[in-house]
Amino acid sequence: MKRKKYLWLSIVSVLCVLVLWELVTDVLRLMPSYMLPSPLEVCKAFAYKVSGGVNPDGASLWTHIATSLKIALGGYLAGVVIGVPLGIAMAWYKKVDLFVKPLFDLLRPIPPLAWIPLMILWFGIGYGAKVVIIFISSMIACVVNSYAGIKQTRQVHIWVAKTFAATNLQILFRVALPTARPMILTGLKTSLGSAWMALVAAELLASTSGLGYMIQMARQMGRADIIVVGMIVIGLIGAALSSLLDLLTSRIGGKKTKRRG
């Protein structure tokens, strides 16, 4: 209720920033447009790129978006398909835990982005290297969250299941997994964010197409308006993907997940 009460303040605050931005750029010319484009310039560049303009980076916005999405979703799906079961197996089977955890703990302090150069040398600057990077960064969050989720299973619940003569697998599927579900969903969401960030980093470093490539090219050409357009599109797609995931998981998870998450 309190938030609604101050809605006008929020609107005023956003408007103020826009007006200030316009003042600094177009009106008072305190910042040159190759460093900070005015809101109007950004809008113009946005309209140009959306309508299919290919300058200055050689491809339309839609081509870049398609390239980026293909790579990001490919790597992300692979990370989820392998990461979630791995996390669950580590948490449920002691032997797997004992064997995998040391390796996992050994590699985890290395940020996924640091793998980029190695992967580029091994797999080239095409599709492969970037998919592997995104795979690594999304898998980590999936493993960590699924593991923690399963470990949250209460011993009492396991005992109850055992007194009903449930098998180990039955306990895993009927008791541990439902307990872990909210954490696993959190993992899916976190890893989507890190996948998207890894994609941008990989594209900034080495690529010939994609949103990261677009803003990197724009920097080399001194086109700050295109950079800002690229950043906005990256932000928008990131937010859209994350709310899409929310929508999908709330369908699967029902109301319960929402309340707990």
């Binding site: 960030m197 803003i215 950079i227 950043m231 990256i234 932000g235 937010a239």
Partner: peptide
């Protein structure tokens, strides 16, 4: 929503 990495060119 804009990853910090995307700020690098700017």
């Amino acid at each position: 929503p804009i990853p910090p990495i995307a700020w690098i060119p700017l």
